[in-house]
């Protein structure tokens, strides 16, 4: 049954009743118009349906593309998150090793030893360690933005906080250290180590002592000669017949006695001087080796940067 019920009823009645040609004509015209109307509507809804099918197809493509991008970025974010965590662990390890290495190196040892005050070494080492850590922390989360910026500027400037209050470039550090090495390898009277100065002073004291001793021996011999002459004169006056023998015996005894004593003393002093000199040489060698080791550590540290 058609939705237009009045028209439908009217048509049915027209069909059942005895024909009234005018009524049939009007009903037929109305039904024909209604049919044309539904044809038009049918065509329109079909067009709308086609349009929706097209929209659905396009939207499905958009959804597929969006899903593909979503999956892609989701995977990237996931991998990157894992990478960041791993990077944090790796960088933490690197930072730890650097701090550890820097604590071992403490390049300022060179200047500390030069000062000749070994008591200050541990304290200055600790100070250097703190400064190295501060430089390393320049990129950590615990620093403020200003501190981080300062560290970044320092890093970009090519300078490092190389101990003390000064900031020196790598070349400056190498040059300074090399100059220190040359001093070590050169003559022993350089400023390398307060020990060297002390050693030189000690050597001078030894030399002076030797000279004094030689002078004393010389004076002693002169005195002995003088005494012998006097004795000979006395003996000649008292007993001229035995003068020669007594004179000779006295002279020989005194000379031999004094000569043995001096020789023993000289030998002992020479032995002590040699031992002391050996000890000084050992200390110098050890200081030189320490300096070379520090230089090697410094070079390694600088290459590691």
């Amino acid at each position: 049954m058609a939705k237009n019920k009045s028209l439908y009823e009217r048509a049915k009645n027209a069909l059942k009743a005895n024909y009234n040609l005018n009524e049939l004509r009007d009903v037929n015209a109305a039904v024909r118009d209604e049919k044309i109307k539904t044809d038009t509507i049918k065509k329109e809804v079909h067009d709308v349906e086609k349009g929706f099918v097209g929209l659905k197809s396009k939207q499905q493509m958009k959804k597929d593309n969006a899903k593909s991008a979503w999956q892609k970025y989701k995977d990237i974010a996931k991998v990157l998150a894992v990478t960041v965590v791993a990077a944090g662990a790796i960088y933490g390890g690197i930072t730890y090793m650097r701090n550890k290495n820097n604590k071992i190196q403490v390049p300022e040892n060179t200047s500390i030893v030069t000062d000749g005050n070994k008591d200050t070494v541990p304290e200055q080492n600790a100070e250097n360690e703190v400064k190295v850590e501060e430089v390393q922390k320049g990129t950590s989360h615990r620093l403020t933005d200003a501190e981080r910026q300062e560290a970044a500027d320092l890093k970009n400037s090519g300078k490092v906080s190389y101990g003390g209050d000064t900031q020196k470039t790598r070349e400056e550090v190498i040059q300074e250290t090399n100059s220190g090495r040359k001093e070590v390898e050169g003559e022993t009277t350089t400023k390398f180590g307060g020990d060297n100065q002390q050693v030189n002073e000690d050597k001078q004291v030894i030399e002076d002592a030797k000279k004094d001793q030689n002078k004393e021996v010389k004076d002693l011999n002169e005195n002995v000669t003088s005494v012998t002459k006097k004795d000979n004169t006395t003996e000649q006056k008292k007993a001229p017949e035995n003068n020669y023998e007594k004179k000779e015996e006295t002279k020989v005894e005194v000379k031999e006695e004094k000569t043995q004593e001096v020789k023993s003393q000289e030998k002992q002093e020479k032995s002590e001087a040699k031992a002391y000199s050996n000890e000084i040489d050992t200390q110098q060698q050890k200081a030189k080796e320490d300096q070379q080791k520090q230089q090697a550590d410094l070079d390694d540290w600088l290459m590691g940067r």
């Binding site: 027209a14 024909y19 009903v27 049919k35 509507i41 049918k42 809804v45």
Partner: peptide, 25 residues
């Protein structure tokens, strides 16, 4: 009159068919 009745019946059937199709669409 017979022709008109046939035409009316045919069109009524078409109308019902169209309306059904429109509803489904």
């Amino acid at each position: 009159a017979i022709l008109m009745k046939q035409e009316i019946e045919t069109n009524l059937a078409e109308i019902e068919k169209n309306e059904k199709e429109i509803d489904e669409t």
